[in-house]
Simulated assay, not measured.
Amino acid sequence: MLRTFDFCLPMAAKAVPNGPDWIHEIKYDGYRLRVERSGRDVRLITKGGHNWTSRFPWIAEAALKNREQQFIIDGEAVVLGVDGVSDFNALHSRRHDAEVQLYAFDIIALDGEDLRQLPLMMRKTNLARLLRGRPDGMFVAPFEQSAIGPELFGAACRMGLEGIVSKRRDRRYAGGRSKDWIKVKNRSHPAMHREF
């Protein structure tokens, strides 16, 4: 089972990439998190290397309910408001830790196999299969393909969302900052001015 590797991090950009090689996901406002399961052992690891397994019990329980015994999922820990929009203030307050869910957007390993060399779309297929039936506490990040990115970004801004992340559909998972993952933020969103 993989235990140490770097998160793939998106590069900031001012414009959404356009073309058939890209997929586009809504950027949820939360904490980046890796869910690691090996048998009955589950760990929730932050980008900074902290173990937050006890902090977000709903995610840990969802991981244990999965039929697969070994996997590593990459995603964002979020608190969703009644409107389905992520609420960072509710998340950061720690008053809603029991309601925190995982917005899962990638899978790194499955059944002991390292999937990082697979193209993104193959990893997305594996992730959808793993989380089929949407277990409570984890949900698969929806995405749009091709040239819809700029329109999706406009819609995200109008809805007051943080922005979008665009990813090359044919690329492997590479640790560190990657030009294959591009984030474009809504400049009027509170996350643009956050200090922490």
Rank of each mutant, 00 (worst) to 15 (best):
R43C: 10
L44V: 12
T46D: 02
T46E: 06
K47H: 03
G48T: 11
H50N: 02
H50F: 04
H50M: 01
H50P: 00
W52R: 07
S54L: 11
R55K: 11
F56A: 07
P57C: 11
P57L: 04
P57W: 09
W58D: 03
I59R: 03
I59F: 02
A60C: 05
E61D: 09
A62I: 05
A62H: 05
K65Y: 00
K65Q: 11
N66F: 00
E68H: 06
Q70P: 00
Q70T: 10
F71H: 08
F71A: 09
I72W: 09
D74C: 12
D74Y: 08
V78T: 02
V78P: 00
V78F: 02
V79F: 15
V79A: 10
L80M: 10
L80W: 09
G81V: 11
V82E: 14
D83N: 15
G84D: 14
V85F: 11
V85C: 05
V85L: 13
V85A: 11
V85N: 05
S86T: 07
D87I: 09
D87E: 15
F88N: 08
F88A: 05
N89D: 15
N89T: 10
N89V: 00
N89S: 13
A90T: 12
L91K: 04
H92D: 15
H92T: 06
R95P: 02
R95M: 04
H96F: 14
H96M: 12
